[in-house]
């Protein structure tokens, strides 16, 4: 087997494309794929200020690396969620990545927000699952950092496997409102929102991991300790088996949904978001889910301990 471009010894074979690439040609291929997705979906303008959400994982660091390499005005945003050694390690990797390349980085430390909002604390105090607490907090701080920093776009490292697993979950539960919003570009629906884009939505995890490895990007290989047993991993396993039996299944699933299925769901009207009276971010009630969570945490912290039954 030889590189499809230059006939050199390959290092990456993409089963879905039946194509092998040497190191240099693979990095070029990957970059062009991101560039094409950005252009075809009109994700970024040449003067846009782009806030890149980075977790320390392969996808977000690869995305930041490519977008900065393409000349976009990028700033990284890292959320320090307080998940023990996992968060400490991922923060260290993100800060090193940014410092060695001279990329600007913003860090939001959950321990310093609203009296302390780390994911373990919020989960313990509210009996929410850590993933549910994490999701609510991440969405809020991403949106708020983008608004407060005057950014035009928020870019995330969601890849093809993420999108296929999310689509499978949405279809299995026929979550019409979620299907209506599952797109690689989300235009703002409220003055406090910015455009959200997923430039890696057609690149598999194998492709993003290969890019990160071949570029020498030191990323966090360990899984979030709260992800064990996550439903998304089950969906990814099922899709991985389908992909192994029939390469290209995941890409076809997502592409065809976006071409034929998604427009039908998007045509349904959804209620417009109002404004949270506390933080000014979008909300479907008087206060947004984040501010409701902050109030609940504050209440729990001031409650006297319950008497133990004899």
């Amino acid at each position: 087997m030889k590189c499809v471009r230059c006939r050199a010894k390959p290092e990456v074979y993409l089963r879905a494309h039946n194509a092998a690439f040497c190191r240099g040609c693979y990095l070029e291929y990957f970059t062009r794929q991101v560039e094409r997705a950005v252009r075809r979906q009109r994700m970024l303008g040449p003067t846009d200020r782009v806030l890149v959400a980075v977790s320390g994982g392969k996808d977000s660091l690869a995305l930041w690396d490519v977008l900065a390499g393409l000349g976009y005005d990028t700033t990284g945003l890292y959320l320090a969620q307080g998940i023990g050694a996992y968060s400490a390690r991922s923060r260290q990797l993100v800060e090193t990545f940014a410092a060695t390349r001279g990329f600007p980085l913003q860090v939001v430390d959950f321990a310093e927000q609203d009296g302390g909002m780390t994911v373990p604390d919020v989960a313990a105090l509210t009996r929410r699952s850590p993933c549910a607490a994490c999701g609510t907090l991440k969405r809020h701080y991403f949106d708020r950092a983008a608004r407060d920093g005057g950014f035009d776009v928020l870019a995330t490292g969601h890849n093809l496997d993420d999108e296929a697993a999310r689509l499978l979950g949405n279809v299995l539960h026929w979550q019409r409102d979620h299907l209506a919003r599952q797109r690689p570009v989300l235009e703002p629906t409220h003055a406090a929102f910015v455009r959200k884009v997923k430039p890696l939505y057609l690149l598999s995890e194998y492709e993003t991991a290969s890019y990160a490895f071949l570029r020498g990007i030191d990323y966090v290989v360990d899984e979030c300790p709260n992800a064990a047993g996550a439903t998304q991993l089950l969906y990814k396993d099922v899709l991985g088996r389908l992909e192994a039996a029939s390469p290209g299944t995941k890409a076809g699933f997502v592409r065809e949904f976006l071409r034929t299925g998604q427009p039908a769901f998007a045509a349904e009207t959804t209620p417009a978001a109002g404004t949270c009276e506390r933080c000014g971010m979008p909300s479907f009630g008087e206060v947004c889910s984040h501010c409701a969570l902050v109030a609940e945490i504050a209440r729990k912290r001031t409650e006297p301990p319950r008497a133990v039954a004899p």
Binding site: M1, P10, E11, V12, Y13, A20, G57, K58, D59, C131, C134, G135, K138, R139, H158, D161, D162, A165, E205, Y206, T208, A209, S210, F213, L214, V221, E223, C224, N226, A227, A230, Q232, L233, K236, D237, G240
Partner: peptide, 27 residues
């Protein structure tokens, strides 16, 4: 420091890393 394809041979005295690429829990 290189990635191996499925068709390549790994030898008795090789040290190999098999690094999973699938991650979960993205909200």
């Amino acid at each position: 420091d290189t990635l191996l394809l499925d068709s390549e041979i790994v030898e008795e005295d090789d040290e190999i890393e098999v690094r999973a690429v699938i991650s979960g829990g993205a909200a």
